[in-house]
């Protein structure tokens, strides 16, 4: 072959390659033999596809996430209970920190969660005012961690200056006070990193005079920055985006519901909770017996918390969600199913 022909061949090959690349996008036809699946769009009707469905909002029947918001919702840990010689109730808890887990935080999205006792959020710790609380803390992770509880206690029990090294342990002990809704979280620097990865949980101190009987539940508002750009990709209540949309929380008509609502959301200035078809009594921090407000929305900054009390007059499905619509559309929505 002459060099002219070779050069021509190169030009033609380049042109063909370019054309092939240009047309490659038109060549994709989904395998028609697959059964059709349906995508439920936002106000735009349905779409039938032979491919895969990407939809964290509607339940596709797969229980794949490593977090169980249903179990977390009404699970209160009272500890191993014993009575001291002076009559004080002792509540002992064992908490193990880890930072090596990869968790499915939303269908198909895997994130390196840092956990207390293997879950995000960590276990809800509950005591009564005046109890002696003792926490056996083990750091099973690869970085130093600690437990910082809100509430009244001695400085050395504050979990700030005592960083627990990997493999280390520490025993926290204090008398539970005051009555109210508190929280705990890791207080090791960089704080933003330790909290945004999932090291937090709820700490409830019941008043000596118990609150009225109610259907009690915990709601922790959090988020996940899965691409580490200091903006959350997901917002949730109790750990999984959109979870209570496809697993509505069942409650009874006319029965008092008490929500222990905690905001631990990192990166964003505020977060809030809005209830549909109803209003609630709002007890900020849960420290006072009288409600602060009768409302259908409460806005909180990071670390703030409130006790909400309400009962539904009519049966049916009622949404609850962040009234920051961006958060709602990234996962912070749910449904109460009120039954007769």
């Amino acid at each position: 072959m002459s060099s002219a022909k070779i050069l021509l061949a190169v030009v033609i090959a380049t042109a063909l390659a370019g054309t092939a690349l240009a047309f490659s996008s038109a060549g994709i036809q989904a395998g028609a033999q697959d059964p059709e699946k349906t995508v439920t769009g936002h106000s735009a009707g349905l779409y039938q596809t032979s491919g895969d469905v990407l939809d964290p909002e509607h339940f596709d029947g797969r229980e794949t996430t490593d977090i169980d918001p249903d179990k977390y919702l009404r699970e209160f840990n009272y500890g191993r209970v014993s009575t001291l010689p002076d009559g004080t109730t002792l509540r002992e808890f064992t908490i193990i920190a880890d930072d090596r887990q990869t968790m499915e935080v939303s269908p198909g999205v895997f994130y390196n969660g840092w956990t207390f006792n293997g879950t995000i959020p960590g276990p809800t710790i509950r005591a009564t005012e005046g109890d002696l609380v003792r926490i056996y803390f083990y750091n099973n992770g690869t970085k130093p961690h600690s437990m910082h509880f809100h509430g009244i206690h001695r400085a050395e029990m504050d979990g700030v200056f005592e960083q627990i090294s990997p493999g280390g342990r520490f025993t926290y002990e204090w008398t539970a006070e005051p009555a109210g809704l508190h929280l705990y979280h890791c207080h090791v620097q960089p704080l933003e990193e330790h909290i945004s990865h999932g090291l937090y949980g709820v700490y409830i101190v019941d008043p000596k005079e118990p609150r009225p009987e109610a259907d009690e539940m915990v709601m922790v508002m959090n988020g996940y920055d899965t691409d580490f750009d200091t903006e959350n990709n997901f917002y949730t209540v109790n750990g999984v985006p959109f979870y209570y949309m496809h697993h509505p929380i069942q409650i009874e008509k006319d029965r008092l519901v008490r929500v222990y609502l905690v905001n631990i959301l990192e990166f964003d200035q505020i977060n809030n909770f809005h209830l549909h078809g109803n209003l609630f009594n709002l007890y900020r921090t849960g420290t006072m017996p009288e409600p602060d407000e009768y409302t259908d929305i409460v806005t909180m900054s990071q670390g703030e918390r409130s006790v909400l009390e309400f009962s539904y007059k009519y049966p049916g499905q009622y949404m609850f969600h962040a009234h920051k619509t961006e958060f709602a559309e990234k996962g912070w929505t749910g449904i109460f199913l009120v039954k007769e």
Partner: peptide
């Protein structure tokens, strides 16, 4: 616009190197 939406992906959600797919979003 950075808001999660239900969508379909054809032919498959898993993509080999240089593979292509269409993400179809019902959206008004």
């Amino acid at each position: 616009n950075d808001r999660i939406v239900p969508a379909a992906i054809e032919p498959l959600r898993s993509l080999e190197r240089f593979a292509e797919a269409q993400v179809i979003i019902p959206f008004d």
